[in-house]
Computed example of a mutant assay.
Amino acid sequence: MGQVEIDPAEITRVLQELVAIPSVNPAFEGGCGEAGVADYVKQYLAEHGIPYMEQLVEPGRSNIIGMLPGQHPGPALLLEAHMDTVQTTGMTIDPFAGTVTDGRLYGRGACDTKGSLAAMLVAVAALKRSGLPLPVGVHVAAVIDEEYRYTGVSRLAASISSGELSYCGAVVGEPTGLHRVIAHKGCVRFYIDVHGKPGHSSEPGKGVNAIEQMAEVIRYLKEEIAPLYALQEHPLVGAPTHCISEITGGAAPNTIPGSCRITIDRRTVPGEEPLEVWQGFKDRLQELKQNVPGLKLTVQEPFIIDYAMETSGSHPLVLQLASAVTGYAEGRHEHGAAYGTDASKLARVSVPSVVFGPGDIGQAHTDNEWVSVQEVVSAASALAELILHYRRDGM
């Protein structure tokens, strides 16, 4: 079977055009949504004769799924990347210029994760132009809302669960430096509220200071709960963690604070269920209440739940992607990650997934975000190679 050549000039052009389209998630400052990028993806696919479907997720925000058929019937291979970015506030470069300097293309989303999206689009377009028969069908899904609530991939997962779409595996685009991330953490985020008794600050003994009571809760989380995480060390992603990421409390400088709230960001490892983790916090804090006089608290329902993910290193997708990457980038390995991705939602509906793409996660969300153009070219080349030689049943 032949080989498909990826044109660096096309990679550069497509990535510059994607970066030039603002797609800040509406949850963030200046958020305009992904509609402009979705229109671009539809146009790009249409220009290359690749049929696509549009999944409306919420008003003005849709997933776009391009589809190339394979020689043999059966589940397709999925390439998935998100279209949204974080805010551009505080950037030290023009976030939409797509300037190329010393082989680096700069702009918001260049690394996270329009580089991956460009690689996927150019790879399938090159395959289409080549006319080579594909052993497996391939879908490219450009989805919304990865940076906030994962509604885009959740809609895609629902279509998989219902049988509308069927996949034998998924490559999820994120900046991994062309390494293969086969496990990552999940998270559960929730509030803990402490309820005090307000009063005049000149007589603090006549009230119950919610901030001081919360200090006991914070101490307990650090000294009693956090040390237990070492018992759950995972070989690829490490131990669970929690972070107290926000705190609010009090009403005025001269008032005993009657309330205090903290936000908990608890990162889970493969094998943990987020709701069970949250329930564990509730149970342990009930024990604390019995030991701290006057402590009244509420552990609120989670406002964000995401899942950890793990795919076997011996899965055919992992092995075949490793083989495909070898020809374009040396020294790449299987890794775990502390962050979360769309891959976990696909894994929950039985689609084995690998996170893979150009760029360094350390460049994501930065004030001068960039990605190596050559790495995007290598990613596209490896994806084309993977698709051309993919076998659902292994090597």
Rank of each mutant, 00 (worst) to 15 (best):
residue 130 S to Y: 01
residue 146 E to K: 02
residue 166 S to R: 04
residue 160 I to A: 01
residue 112 D to E: 11
residue 160 I to R: 00
residue 144 I to E: 10
residue 155 R to Y: 06
residue 132 L to M: 10
residue 135 P to S: 10
residue 133 P to M: 14
residue 127 L to W: 04
residue 131 G to K: 06
residue 151 T to D: 07
residue 118 A to M: 13
residue 116 S to F: 04
residue 121 L to M: 08
residue 129 R to Q: 14
residue 133 P to K: 08
residue 124 V to R: 00
residue 160 I to T: 05
residue 149 R to L: 12
residue 145 D to G: 12
residue 117 L to K: 00
residue 149 R to F: 04
residue 120 M to Q: 12
residue 151 T to A: 05
residue 167 Y to C: 15
residue 166 S to H: 08
residue 115 G to R: 00
residue 139 H to V: 13
residue 163 G to C: 11
residue 113 T to E: 02
residue 140 V to W: 07
residue 133 P to N: 15
residue 122 V to D: 08
residue 125 A to D: 12
residue 129 R to G: 04
residue 130 S to K: 01
residue 113 T to M: 05
residue 125 A to E: 14
residue 148 Y to E: 02
residue 169 G to L: 08
residue 166 S to M: 13
residue 135 P to N: 11
residue 120 M to C: 04
residue 139 H to I: 08
residue 115 G to T: 08
residue 136 V to A: 11
residue 108 R to W: 10
residue 115 G to Q: 03
residue 129 R to K: 14
residue 158 A to V: 10
residue 148 Y to V: 06
residue 141 A to Q: 06
residue 165 L to A: 03
residue 141 A to N: 10
residue 167 Y to G: 12
residue 137 G to T: 12
residue 169 G to S: 07
residue 123 A to D: 05
residue 146 E to I: 04
residue 151 T to F: 02
residue 160 I to C: 07
residue 121 L to D: 00
residue 118 A to F: 09
residue 139 H to W: 01
residue 123 A to P: 04
residue 119 A to K: 00
residue 139 H to Q: 14
residue 165 L to Q: 09
residue 114 K to A: 10
residue 162 S to Q: 13
residue 120 M to N: 00
residue 155 R to V: 10
residue 120 M to G: 00
residue 137 G to M: 15
residue 114 K to S: 02
residue 148 Y to H: 13
residue 154 S to Y: 01
residue 155 R to M: 09
residue 144 I to C: 07
residue 138 V to L: 07
residue 116 S to E: 02
residue 144 I to R: 03
residue 166 S to W: 15
residue 134 L to N: 03
residue 141 A to C: 15
residue 116 S to G: 11
residue 159 S to Y: 05
residue 108 R to F: 14
residue 143 V to D: 15
residue 151 T to C: 05
residue 150 Y to F: 12
residue 148 Y to A: 14
residue 114 K to Y: 07
residue 117 L to E: 01
residue 130 S to L: 11
residue 114 K to M: 10
residue 116 S to H: 15
residue 160 I to N: 00
residue 119 A to N: 05
residue 135 P to W: 09
residue 165 L to D: 03
